[in-house]
Design a protein around this nucleic acid. Structure first.
Lengths: 232, 232
DNA sequence: CTAATAGTGTCTTTGAGACACTATGGC
DNA sequence: GCCATAGTGTCTCAAAGACACTATTAG
């Protein structure tokens, strides 16, 4: 009963998603080493028992090492495991989802990642295609009842930009008024600066985005807000 | 770069939940061995790389070995890990939630488990309290937009029993008509046997539960159904 | 002034939920 | 007949969403 079972390999993979003009994209890199050299894969790596204090730490360290990025949104997705996903044997991969504004990715050398539309994913190493599918499903689903899409935008954004983000995530359009009422923004509060979404998370700043039109108030979100009901 | 990092221990833990008269209960057993001998803990065990074909297999095997149970509902919850959760060092625990009808537990010897109300959990070994909390949160949340509570009932059940189950999970009552409309059951369809919930998962059988009143049609659910909108 | 986009008031329709009425068994 | 619980029809009120109107900038 106290037989020592062979320990499986344990790694952390990160599904890094961003929003480009044509919709959600996933960041993939080309593997150099065995197994699957030359294949596209998610960024990931082994846990470093001596330096990682948590799984999230390991995920952040992996991204930091490979790209220098520190994503503002990082969430555990699910754990993928089994005897067949890695030719070296029984393995465990704890998968994370990271959301990064497209603008931040300009700082990453273009040789590190290739970006692919999440609705048109090529063949990937290991079970990484499954991980991407699960991540996209999670993001779409969670966006329907939360302020999650805020993390695909820069720190400050207009309501119209946020609306376009939701529309890109879901591939569906709504009217401005409908969008705002879905967020739970009470009419009249945008101008007074008391605008607040249903979850009390969207914060009106005193800055405006100027341009060839009426200036638009800029908002920010500090934490994830959950709506009472799904709405998309 | 090819330094061999020490592999963490990997185990699977199961949060086994059931519904007794006074609400949701979690099954706990008293540990015999180190670490934490004498403490209450979740059932769990190491992965057996030679016999487990998946994580879910490992979870099922664990339950089978300890109790002989084969839960109809089993779902991966989340992975808990870190250097501090087990005194033996960096460890990874993939947590599963299992739902079992109270009736099925009669077959398990009463010495195996003690049942505790999920809203009044004692101190547990490792981070098992966190796991229970997360499991309950998941079950409550998912019940608000799915037919998940069906798995807390025997194979066939009346709509009233199902309503009582939802009410026990949430600790809140509604009228019969409200409950049925939440499921999306169209009026008039219960009697004709075409009754179907919003997700098309509740199946009307031809059996009725008799008693000192008008007989109630029995239903069954084969798979989990998701509603379009949360409703509790 | 016009063009362009931001913000809001109003109306319609849908649907959630409370209530009360009808149905059908055991006694 | 009565009691008890199952199943359903109806009404009300609130929220979702479309549309159109007003507001504020640049040029």
């Amino acid at each position: 009963m106290t037989k020592a079972y062979e320990k499986p390999d344990v790694s952390v993979d990160v599904v890094l998603l961003t929003l480009a003009e044509k919709g959600l994209k996933v960041a993939l890199h080309r593997r150099a080493k065995e197994p699957y050299p030359g294949s596209l894969a998610l960024p990931g790596g082994y846990i470093h028992a001596d330096e990682d204090d948590s799984l999230e730490d390991a995920a952040r360290r992996t991204l930091q090492d490979k790209t220098g990025l520190a994503p503002r949104y990082l969430e555990q997705l699910r754990t993928f495991a089994g005897p067949g996903r890695d030719p070296r044997g029984w393995s465990v991969a704890i998968s994370y989802v990271a959301l990064v504004p497209f603008e931040e990715l300009a700082a990453v050398p273009s040789t590190v990642f290739e970006f692919y539309s999440v609705d048109d994913i090529p063949a990937l190493a290991f079970d990484h295609s499954d991980q991407v599918r699960a991540a996209v499903e999670r993001v779409r689903n969670k966006s329907s009842y939360s302020t999650l899409p805020c993390w695909l935008l820069p720190g400050k954004f207009t309501l119209t930009q946020l609306q376009h983000t939701y529309e890109a995530v879901f591939g569906e359009s709504v009217t401005r008024a409908t969008f705002r009422s879905r967020l739970g923004i009470k009419v009249g509060d945008v101008q007074t600066g008391e605008a607040v979404d249903e979850a009390g998370v969207l914060i009106a700043t005193d800055d405006y985005q100027l341009g060839n039109q009426r200036p638009a108030r800029l908002f920010r979100a500090d934490k994830l807000g959950l709506f009472k009901r799904a709405s998309w």
